[in-house]
Design a binder for these strands. Structure first.
Lengths: 340, 340
DNA sequence: CTGTTAGCGCTTTCAC
DNA sequence: GTGAAAGCGCTAACAG
């Protein structure tokens, strides 16, 4: 940090006092127009940059929020939702005048230590993206209260913004039903993990069946043992064995698609002729597979934006604990066939 | 920002002066052990958090660096390298005592305005991840000089940290050669884009051929018109037409794999029996395809870590402009066959 | 060892 | 309209 221009320098240059410069730069009305113009011009000329920290020190307002992401699983770092959500969040926070401090939960910084950092930097709020339940707990039990919003995961006692998984589940079944399918299976996401997405999608699946007047049987759902290819593969295998006549499967995650594909190849089942499939997340490659996969797209833009709006509301004192749901959209490609 | 504990509060509580408290808390030696213990204990008890900004104001050291990411293409937000690199960078910066401010280059904040932000926050350095050439230019021409490191892209006049693409290209050919292939094609990445990865990999391809004693012919390389599936598909089609006897293809990006797959299916070519293929990036799904794809893995951890180390060096005044290369590793799976 | 003082850059009364 | 003065929380001389 080399020699930097301060309001004192400007004051000296235009022959005014620092106070006046401050006022002019902040658009106060009690400065003559002539003086204001002169100051603003000079400031630009000298390349003045306000020292946000000094200002914050005085005003007790940092205009900084922290963002905490990631579970302990390293994989999530490659989760395609994170960056888009963060980016949308950032853009919206910028609209509100805030900037972002990056606070991932690396092992050493879990819990209180993470809070220390946040506090020491005077952050005014925290966005939690997909944090692990343990961390969430630490946060809730922390003595200090700081406005927080959880995105892509429900954390009780704070506003949570996430995809309407249940409705998506219903829509999946509905779509499959309309396409003529009557024997539908579901590979559910694991429970007890980050977020409750797995359970919610499964609930939607059941509700969808009900609405279409189909009877639900335990055998139609197999819960995968993780959000991975392998887990999907195993689950699908079991599902097929339990439902030899199944014509369609709704996967709670695109990751499972690969497993389904694998098993289908093994058993000589063609997609979509012999097996229709719907995924979840619209991962990049799903569009390029052959056939292209029909899958749900989460509205990452909205997820980030609304998280930002809620967080600002919280910061401004309007604390309300609620769960906000963003609809997912079904992206129809070629992995579901119409049967008669 | 509610009522917050300061060193004055602690001073009062233990009956010492703020200066002593400051010294004790900062591990200075000129405080009696008894007093130090008392202060530290009290501080913890009262939940004291140092105000980093106040300290920075005094010390002229913010312990903050900014991170600028993303090209103008929205897609990059889903680029699987970003988050891992950022995360590795963050962890390493943390080791050095720094925290991260998030400065994506949303359209409105390009160029000087981005600098204003960075400056106003007193950031001591900037990490540029894969920024667009235009932005890079704005940075270079900016009047203000602030230590910068470019990751995953070469920007002249600053230290750049990136994968050793050329060597990877050589290795690809070498491996293919050892597996018995003699007619090898290459789908090159587009030129003039972010980074020079495309050109570098192509250069490696040619060098590899040379080393293996194979003659290179123009027809063996087709440059894709982007980093997309579609571009890869078109390129491969052309490549096949130009080289009917080709038995292997080295793709500059995993994205191209899908296109290759597509064309192979069309032409009834089985991978790897009829066509061996190598990709680049080790995207998650490449492992789960059937067959699993052989591809290069970039060392995101190292990319982030070294970027951090170099940036800190720069901040500490050791300015050197260099290009640091990190080797990629060939992840061998089943998309290359041994021919006789 | 400990405390007093001054000042980092900024904003904000409150006189003038 | 303008400026002098005080203070945000912290640290660095420098006395004592």
């Amino acid at each position: 940090m080399s020699r930097v221009i301060t309001i004192y320098d400007i004051a000296k240059a235009v022959g005014a006092s620092p106070a006046t410069v401050s006022k002019a730069l902040n658009g106060r009305r009690d400065v003559s127009d002539a003086m204001r113009d002169k100051i603003i011009k000079k400031a630009a000329e000298m390349g003045y940059r306000p020292n946000v920290n000094a200002r914050g020190l005085k005003m007790k307002k940092s205009w900084l929020v922290g963002i905490v992401y990631g579970s302990d699983m390293h994989d999530t770092l490659e989760h395609p939702l994170f960056l888009p959500i963060m980016d949308a969040f950032k853009r919206q926070m910028e609209m509100h005048g805030y900037e972002l401090l990056f606070l991932s939960q690396s092992s050493k910084f879990i819990g209180d230590s993470l809070f220390s950092h946040a506090f020491s930097r005077q952050v005014e709020g925290l966005l939690l993206i997909n944090v692990s339940p343990e961390t969430a707990n630490l946060f809730k039990h922390s003595a200090t209260h700081i406005p927080m919003v959880s995105c892509d995961g429900i954390i009780s006692s704070m506003t949570s913004v996430l995809t309407d998984n249940e409705s998506a589940g219903i829509e999946a079944v509905d779509y499959l039903y309309k396409m003529g399918h009557r024997s539908i299976g579901h590979i559910a996401g694991p429970v007890g993990m980050i977020a409750t997405a797995g359970e919610e999608r499964k609930r939607g699946f059941k509700l969808g069946l009900e609405r279409c007047g189909l009877v639900y049987d335990e055998s139609q759902v197999v819960t995968a043992k993780g959000w991975t290819f392998k887990a999907g593969r195993d689950a699908f295998m079991q599902l097929l064995n339990q439902n030899p006549h199944m014509t369609a499967v709704f996967c709670a995650a695109d990751f499972y698609l690969m497993g389904v594909l694998d098993v289908c190849k093994e058993r000589n089942l063609t997609i979509p002729q012999d097996m229709s499939v719907i995924g979840f997340d619209d991962l990049q490659w799903t569009a390029y597979m052959n056939p292209g996969f029909t899958t749900f797209r989460q509205d990452k833009e909205m997820l980030g934006k609304l998280s930002a709006d809620r967080l600002v509301e919280n910061i401004n004192g309007e604390h309300r604990e609620e769960i906000i749901r963003i609809p997912a959209t079904l992206v129809i490609r070629d992995s579901v066939t119409h049967i008669v």
